[in-house]
Design a protein around this nucleic acid. Structure first.
Length: 569
RNA sequence: GCCCCUAUAGCUCAGUGGAUAGAGCACUGGUCUCCGGAACCAGAGGCGGAGGUUCGAUUCCUCCUAGGGGUACCA
């Protein structure tokens, strides 16, 4: 059983022989031509020509003359300054399609990770605040990375670092004591909590004593006062219940919900540890780690009043994770605006001489910004994720009612497609790019979208149902000679390399892009070639196999991104 | 001020230093006696500016411009 990589290996050996270069040098130069009819691999002769003081085209000719096709290589020819290699399409098709067909749901999987642990910190909303559209980014990207690394043989731990500690909870308790009740919180608790929070700030302007009250409540909370603790716990439970509804919608599970409060008991020893290492010092009344030598502002461990900060809790959390998980890598899927924070965090870890310091990575992403200013001001600059998901699902329901009124499980499918549209929208471009939030764009399911991929998948399922027989792998692969068929085979063959690249770059969009290209190629092929031929059983069998394998890759890829692949829609 | 990210078509985005810079949306015009029209085909439309490195730069480096973010007691 071979793969594209081993075809490449054959060519590297041939070229190393002909050019006298080392195999690594050849492999570095060997590339893929921009067009399919220019072959499967191309070797540029520019650099060598310069060294040998000849022109590249002449050199390419010379090499091509020396090389003889063998094995899977059918033809070798000079094309301008390149030597291009053409593989035997039937061989490539056979190797690729029979392997994919056999591996099915495991096609693309690997054991690269060898069970190494990767801790992924993602989503991490603040409790008592609504899950808004901005949270989709970390949630979708983190979840996709989790799936990708797991598919590559890593063991993953998804950690939801809830924002569940800090002065704001003292204020919230104070507000609750003044104006709230548990009955009142029974319905839409997070919205009610937000109202309380907003009211607190409004009234505190008139009545500064409230601020003091809030601080006092937080102090009580920290000191373990049973009443404060109980109220906080209720707030946390109510929030988590709402978040979990959304996570259920998105089919996301976390391995731990260890929020900031979890690390509260470890803060004292963390600060002491840093002091013992001689890194902490007093400055302007606060306790800091000076990072001036590294061109950064100081990392604050304690405020002048002795209270801890974000960085303190993150340091405690990171050290805890190192002990607990013995990770090969820890990934923080957090917005780009926190780059400095993580640079500081990792620098402190390095100065503490932890050997795992280089294995900590911040995976930044761009912000969601609003295109339509009116929308951003309404609702106080917040769009709730739940509202977005509901709108998307509703639109899918409408479309189904119009296009496929007899569909069974229409609600379930509307859910899968509606949620998929929103998630995919967030995973389709490089994560570092800002995402402009635009209802029209989000709810347009034409073109390069999640529903387009799901539609393509469902359409192939439909073809296979109509085919009516089991798909066979023992087909005549020489029949798959059409240009479009060869393009599809090549695309399928590169799936596993694409997943590796996505992991290497922590970039789920590489998979989105791949799937869109695959779906476009298939849809174009489908429009121009009949698959279920009545008069040519051999060709039909071969095309059915190809379609089935494309279906598998679409499904596997969608799963990696966290999308469902419905069989009808 | 300093630091980070970004700049490719009207809009949203692709583009390992290499062959004619590719898609989608929107727009215009087409495609069904045939496997799902959430589709397919076609048209029109583009590398922010100036240098540098290189046989070759959208890609690497420097500077400039524009947008976004950050920059000690928020997270």
């Amino acid at each position: 059983m071979r793969r594209m990589e081993s075809f490449k290996g054959e060519i590297v050996t041939l070229l190393a022989d002909a050019t006298g270069l080392g195999a690594d040098d050849v492999e570095g130069l060997l590339g893929t031509p921009p067009k399919q009819d220019m072959g499967d691999f191309a070797f540029p002769c520019f650099t060598l020509a310069k060294e040998r003081k000849t022109n590249p085209a002449a050199l390419a000719n010379e090499f091509a003359g020396k090389l003889a096709p063998s094995g899977a290589v059918r033809e070798i020819k000079a094309m301008g300054p390149y030597v291009n290699f053409f593989l035997e399409p039937a061989t490539v098709a056979e190797d690729t399609l029979s392997r994919a067909f056999r591996e099915d749901i495991d096609y693309g999987r690997s054991s690269d990770g060898q069970g190494d642990m990767i801790v992924i910190d993602f989503s991490s909303p603040n409790i008592a605040k609504p899950f808004n559209i901005g949270h989709i980014r970390s949630t979708a990207i983190g979840h996709a990375l989790y799936n990708i690394f797991e598919f590559l043989g890593y063991e993953c731990a998804g950690v939801n670092h809830l924002g569940d500690w800090g002065t704001q909870f003292g204020k919230l308790i104070a507000a609750f004591k003044h104006w709230g009740s548990w009955d009142d919180l029974a319905e839409k608790p997070i919205h009610k909590l937000l109202d309380l929070y907003v009211r607190f700030h409004k009234e505190a302007k008139e009545n500064p004593a409230l601020e003091e009250e809030g601080r006092a409540w937080f102090k009580k909370l920290e000191d373990g006062d049973p009443d404060a603790r109980d109220i906080w716990q209720h707030f946390r439970d109510l929030s988590l219940a709402e978040f979990q509804r959304i996570y259920a919608d998105l089919e996301i599970n976390f391995d731990a919900y260890t929020g900031e409060s979890f690390y509260e008991p470890m803060l004292g020893e963390t600060v002491q540890f840093i002091k013992d290492k001689g890194l902490a010092k007093k400055s302007q009344g606060a306790l800091i780690v000076d990072l001036e030598d590294y061109g950064m502002p100081p990392c604050l461990l304690e405020k002048a009043d002795g209270a801890t900060l974000y960085a303190t809790r993150d340091l405690a959390a990171l050290m805890f994770r190192a002990r607990e998980y013995k990770f090969a890598q820890v990934l923080y899927v957090v917005g780009n605006e926190q780059s400095l924070h993580f640079k500081q965090l990792f620098k402190v870890i390095e100065l503490l001489e932890f050997e795992w310091a280089p294995r900590c990575h911040h995976i930044p992403f761009g912000l969601i910004r609003f295109k339509d200013a009116k929308l951003s001001t309404r609702e106080g600059n917040v769009i709730f994720l739940e509202e977005v998901l509901e709108k998307s699902k509703q639109l899918v329901r409408d479309i189904i009612r119009e296009k496929n009124p007899d569909l069974e499980d229409a609600d379930e499918v509307a859910h899968q497609v509606g949620v998929g549209a929103v998630v995919f929208n967030d995973l389709k471009s490089r994560r570092i790019k800002d995402v402009s939030f635009d209802w029209n764009e989000l709810l347009n399911f034409d073109g390069r979208t999640g529903p387009y991929l799901q539609y393509t998948h469902a359409r192939i399922c439909s073809i296979l149902r109509k085919h009516g027989e089991d798909v066979r792998a023992d087909v005549d692969f020489t029949r798959l000679g059409e240009k479009a068929e060869r393009a599809l085979v090549t695309r399928v063959a590169s799936f596993s390399q694409r997943i590796r690249n996505a992991a290497r770059d922590y970039e789920p969009s590489l998979i989105s892009e791949y799937l869109l290209d695959l779906a476009e190629e298939f849809n174009s092929y489908y429009a121009n070639h009949r698959i279920l031929l009545d008069d040519d059983a051999d060709l039909r069998a071969a095309r059915v196999l190809l379609a089935d394998v494309v279906r598998m890759v679409l499904r596997n890829g969608l799963k990696l991104l966290g999308l469902q692949a419905p069989e009808r829609m």
